[in-house]
Design a protein around this nucleic acid. Sequence first.
RNA 1: GCCGAGGUGGUGAAACCGGAAAACACGUUAGCUUCAGGAGCUAAUGCUCUUUUAAGAGCAUGUGGGUUCAAAUCCCACCCUCGGCACCA
Length: 803
Amino acid sequence: MINKYNPLKIEKKWQNYWEKNQIFKAKDFSKKKKFYCLDMFPYPSGEGLHVGHPHGYVATDIISHYKRLSGYNVLHPMGWDAFGLPAENYAIKNGVHPSISTKKNIKRFKEQIKSIGLSYDWSREINTTDPSYYKWTQWIFLLLFKRGLAYEAILPINFCPSCKTGLANEEVIDDKCERCGTKVVKKNLRQWVLKITAYADRLLKDLDGLDWPEKIITMQKNWIGKSEGWQIKFKVLNSNLDIEVFTTRLDTIFGCTYLVLSPEHPLINNLKDKILNYNLVKKYIEEAINKTERERISEVKEKRGIKLEGIKAINPANNKEIDIFIADYVLSYYGTGAVMAVPYHDQRDFDFAKKFDLEFIKVIKPEKESDIKEAYEGEGVLINSGIFNGMKSFVAREKIGEWLLKKNLAKKTVNYKLRDWIFSRQRYWGEPIPIVHCNKCGIVPLSEKDLPLKLPKIKKYQPSGTGESPLATIEKWVNTKCPKCKGPAKRETNTMPQWAGSCWYFLRYVDPKNNKKIFDYRKGKYFLPVDLYVGGVEHAVLHLLYSRFWIKVLYDEGIVDFKEPFLKLRNQGLILASDGRKMSKSLGNVVNPDEVIKKYGADSFRVYHMFMGPFDQPVTWQTKGIKGVRRFLERVYNASDKVKKVKTKNKELEKLLHLTIKKVEEDIENFRFNTAISSLMVLLNKMEKEKEIDIKHFSAFLILLSPFAPHLSEELWQKLGNKKSIFFYKWPKYNSLYIKEEKTTFIIQVNGKVRDKIEVEYNISEEEAKKIALSQDKIKKWIDNKDIKKIIFVPNKLINFVV
RNA sequence: GCCGAGGUGGUGAAACCGGAAAACACGUUAGCUUCAGGAGCUAAUGCUCUUUUAAGAGCAUGUGGGUUCAAAUCCCACCCUCGGCACCA
């Protein structure tokens, strides 16, 4: 048969039609219920889309269509997260201003995305690099500043020598820059820091109500890393100084035989004169500080440290004099930067004490005795612990705490792994931080009316590498007047990190052109928060955590009335190249969607994406695999020739249709697109067998298909004589009457093995089933003249004879 | 080391509230169709064994055990793959 299906022609036609008639525009106010369906917006890179990018976009598009057909007013927008290093690097290399290359890249991305026929409301498109957008990013920064959540600090931070900028902790993976893979170095830099730690507890607690993948929730919980314990004061002998430590195992304090301070601990400087071996100590500290975190961690097995000769501390539990060490396994930024060491009951202390031949005291008796090859870190009963002997360890923790509290030596404390967010970057292509430095007034924020503070055009983008942004070289821009005293002042030259614009972009889609307010609150009240958010798992502790933080601040400020931005989150699986590796330009295994769409059509592209496998699992892209879905769509096209205004008498088909409606509906809701498509295939296979296809059946089928293959469905919908777009119609309702079974295939087992199948009336009784089953020749043979010991009957499923 | 996900035909996978393992596709083979290439249509397709051969039987869901009339599905132990975290006191 000649294929009349010509996707190239019909797809362009319908894309134009949808755009011209604004079919997918979300209404600002509507009596309909809203559904906010959001994709993580892309960074428009110079390479354009590869075949894997739109995986999530196709899924949200299917859901958006499905929700519209089910009567919702759907907000389904798209935009560009366009600040970032690649554009700047490109500018350095080719001298093209980032705003120009960004514009070009966006154009290309938009064309590619449009060619897939995704139903975005393009009237709401946003771009984070647009001053009318980043005005509001800066506005939020001022808000953070006003609330004391943005502060300046000189910190030893992770610095990428290749990108020549400081990085957030979240951006450092295995000691390497998340972007370029270069090993980071420690650098003391003046930084803007956001106090995300002030929200640690709320960021943790509010995870509970979210419909998010368990994995992401766990990752965020681990990243925040809450632990509850006690902070204990150890007095330094012959001085008025204290060393405070944090512990979650106060029950082991009687076993504490020394203290360990981190190399960065400030107390060391105060004790300088008393430390007899200060020169050696100083040398050790210098070495330790120059190591990166990873280097310290990689020496996990080999504990290093040095004893502070000449000074001792007092264990407040038993008043014993104990030694003090410095060791790099103690982290300055966690807890108090000092630990009480209990060699017998902590593996790290155990390793350290072995190496330095220190005293071990056993204070917890485990239920089962074990050998002393390693520390016992479990629970048990206290021994060698004075008045607490015999107490269970989990009780003793509190009792010892209360006892020391009375002596003013302890307080209950909660510690988090989460650290404040290093927020400034020494780069050009980012939002300028709206702050000036005045000799007289200090740090002064710009006022709202001075926003946006536009990024000046410059000729040299090259970062200095000294920790200054390229902006620092533009004197005309840097030198300004203090908003407060009108005296001479200098602008902040650091820019905001990549993540700033994406923290709040979904709010702006609600009212993207508003230049008076961040958005109209009435519009926000209707559309927000986001009902469904789909994107890659790689943002688990970056974008998703930062964004939650900002939304909570906006909530506290009364700008939004919800505490969590994304109610439901789903992650798409990674699309791997056919060699099983990640698609990347450098590996040369990238498949370009343009070519696939040109050859097979956008509908085939969409359907194949969803048919490949479970949505959230990684799959390898096999372009030839797309043939199967292309054939399916061709057969749909050909079947439309057989559609007549006939009333079918095929009860089976009627039933299958209603089962399919139910199945597709449930599968879409549950992100099981692959099985939704296969059930549509099954229905088509059945309909194809008919001489004439009932127009009612085919119409319903087309609506079920339309979220997946919108162009073809629209084309055939028109061919059936409908005047309006298919997307103005209603999702078919399945009727449980049709689904009702009349006959069923009944399985007969002997000893649990299937021996025969029979067609029987639905709801057949056990007695009857037994009678029929036993009369079957095949069954007789198996039962023979053995005794039937037991009969298991499962209604409408099977009967099992145990002989 | 800790946490999480997963392991089913030649391939992608389905079934996973215990009840027909392999739906739906890809690929392969044979036949038809076509000037040819491609495409299409029809049928077969987990493995092994057996003259009950237009059929029958056995074995099959990472490995080994267990529960059950019945296990891919539940329980225990182990192996492997992938992802995350990792000296957090």
